[in-house]
Design a protein around this nucleic acid. Structure first.
Lengths: 138, 138
DNA sequence: CTTATATTTGCATCATTGTTGCATTTGAAA
DNA sequence: TTTCAAATGCAACAATGATGCAAATATAAG
């Protein structure tokens, strides 16, 4: 699907900043940070505009956050757009990339009586194959 | 174990700020935020001192962070101190409390070839029993 | 117990990031 | 093309992360 259509479906105005962010994410092989998206974006937007675009896109459930730690947040298109299954994410502590672990089936979390589950975030931290082989490529 | 001994075992100087933080966490029923700990703390420390104490305690693996989202971070004593099993955490989106889900056994995450796992963070978001019953108690 | 020393604290300070108000600009519906 | 609500860009402020340094303090040695 195209960025334009995604915005229309979610009843958001088609602005170049929003459209650009979605386009970058459609092309991306894995979740990107705000600064990575900013660098891949054609236009040069005010940081407030950029900041508010993420809020809007997240509120409309077009994108979702993957919070690795306080200083590392990545963004990915929502499952409803990618049609992917919910999955765990892998964070490489060397190259700081996040990869989707779609191949790993997730367990069912049966909560104690009275708890209601909305969603589950799973982040596995470690070293990715590339950084294992080339430990000096930081 | 007592705060004093924990600091000694980790070869840290016994300062009242560090000791106070550990004592508060030893008494706590569930993970606390920085501001919650600050309120429960007897002394009134400079924010830099407080800030650096958390860095030191985390580096020495006395405490660990539970990152719920960018603005919600809770702290708990390290598993090596509490002797608890690794477990998932539950974040209530109404009262913002975090509870340890020690009763839920965790699956094994078998990573693809070449990945090395260091640890796994699991945060389940939803509504806790108390807030389910009293939806206006925010 | 006293002294010596390396560590920690508190304060000042600066950087970065989150957030809001408002005038101007822009998208899209009529 | 016109109209109007929504989005942008800018200024400004708040909150938080981070660092340098003199003064205070914990610990080990005497």
């Amino acid at each position: 699907m195209e960025a334009k259509e995604i915005l229309k479906q979610h009843q958001l105005k088609r602005t170049s900043c929003r459209e650009g962010i979605i386009e970058v994410m459609l092309k991306a092989a894995h979740p990107l940070s705000e600064s990575e998206i900013r660098e891949l974006l054609a236009g040069n937007y005010d940081r407030t505009t950029f900041y508010r675009s993420f809020i809007t896109l997240e509120e409309s459930r077009i994108i979702h956050r993957i919070v690795v730690d306080q200083q590392t947040v990545k963004y990915a298109l929502d499952y409803s757009i990618t049609h992917k299954q919910e999955h765990a994410h892998f964070f490489c502590q060397v190259c700081h990339d996040v990869k989707c672990l779609e191949a790993i089936p997730l367990q069912e979390f049966v909560l104690p009586q009275g708890f209601t589950k909305i969603n589950t975030d799973i982040v596995i931290k470690g070293t990715c194959p590339n950084c294992q082989q080339n430990p000096n490529s930081i």
